[in-house]
Simulated assay, not measured.
Amino acid sequence: MTIKIDVTTDLLTHLEFLVTARMGAFFRWQQRWYGKRFIRNRSLHKARQIGADYYFTLEALQDACLTGRNKIFIEPAPSDPDEEFVSFGWAYMLHHAGIKTESTDHKVTKYHITLSNGANIYFLPDNHQGWAGMVGDVYLSEWAYHSDPSHSFQILQGVTCHKKWRRTLYSSRSSQDNAETVETRFLSAGQLFSEPAFYDVVTHGFELYQFDKHQGLTMDKLIQIRSTLPDQEYRELYLCQQPIYSGGE
């Protein structure tokens, strides 16, 4: 599915308002990410449901409109090959652009936005096959749950081999994910492919509570989330403890 968007003064003003005029409404970690948006490598270990896709699609759309740079979001593919690939990032970006659409094609394999300034924005499943010739700034969304994270990192390295392209990785982690070997091969705190990287950890704890309590997040709700999960799962998915794997791959 492809949608064309004209980069107009009205759209640029709208995006500037969303990003700058409302910066105070961003979460603190989103403000940190915005301040590091021009760094080549960003690696983020995050808790679940802290607004990563929502923020990065806004960041990417504004930058693509201003600069004409390509953007590529790589997202987890469905585990069932007969299941429809649904991109939440695509929905967020159309929301930021003020576009309403509904797909009637239940076998969509990629989502594509073309901007009138020449930029292309893609939302692709991690099992996509057509990487040849693709270049751009890449966002690796929830990479730890890709079918083969090592392959995703190899694709990332190839698509962004030119130093001009930027790379952003963000994911929750769990002992049930697929990422055990990736950190030893490609990734460590402060490094990606042996290059320096901005590294951030965002937990579902005090920082979130302090910033969002006026929007309805209370300590009771945090306790409710905590009470529904086993200790290890809660510590990994919400407090960002490094996963405890039962054995090597």
Rank of each mutant, 00 (worst) to 15 (best):
T13N: 13
T13S: 14
E16Y: 06
F17I: 06
V19K: 07
T20A: 11
A21E: 14
R22G: 06
M23W: 02
M23V: 10
M23K: 12
G24T: 06
F26R: 05
W29M: 07
Q30P: 02
Q30R: 02
Q30A: 04
Q31I: 13
R32N: 10
R32F: 09
W33A: 11
Y34G: 04
G35M: 09
K36L: 12
R37C: 04
I39D: 15
I39G: 11
I39M: 15
R40P: 01
R42E: 08
R42K: 15
S43F: 12
S43V: 15
L44M: 15
H45E: 15
H45I: 15
H45T: 14
A47R: 00
Q49T: 02
G51Q: 02
D53S: 09
D53V: 01
Y54P: 01
Y55S: 02
Y55D: 00
F56R: 00
F56L: 04
F56I: 02
T57K: 00
L58N: 00
L58P: 02
E59P: 05
E59A: 07
A60H: 02
L61F: 07
Q62C: 09
Q62K: 12
D63Y: 08
D63L: 13
A64Q: 07
R69G: 07
N70D: 13
K71F: 12
I72W: 04
F73C: 07
E75S: 09
E75L: 07
P76T: 06
P76Q: 06
P76I: 01
P78C: 04
P78E: 05
S79E: 13
S79Q: 11
D80Q: 05
D80K: 06
P81A: 12
P81G: 09
P81C: 10
D82P: 01
D82A: 13
E83V: 03
E84W: 04
E84A: 11
F85L: 06
V86A: 02
V86F: 01
V86D: 02
S87V: 02
S87G: 05
S87R: 00
W90F: 14
A91I: 10
A91R: 10
M93Q: 11
H96Y: 03
A97D: 04
A97V: 06
A97R: 02
A97L: 06
G98C: 04
G98N: 03
I99C: 00
I99P: 02
I99W: 01
T101C: 06
S103D: 12
T104A: 09
D105G: 07
H106L: 13
H106Q: 11
K107E: 15
K107Y: 13
V108S: 13
V108L: 12
V108T: 15
T109P: 03
K110Q: 12
K110S: 10
K110E: 05
I113V: 14
I113G: 03
I113P: 01
L115F: 13
N117G: 10
G118I: 08
I121L: 10
I121E: 01
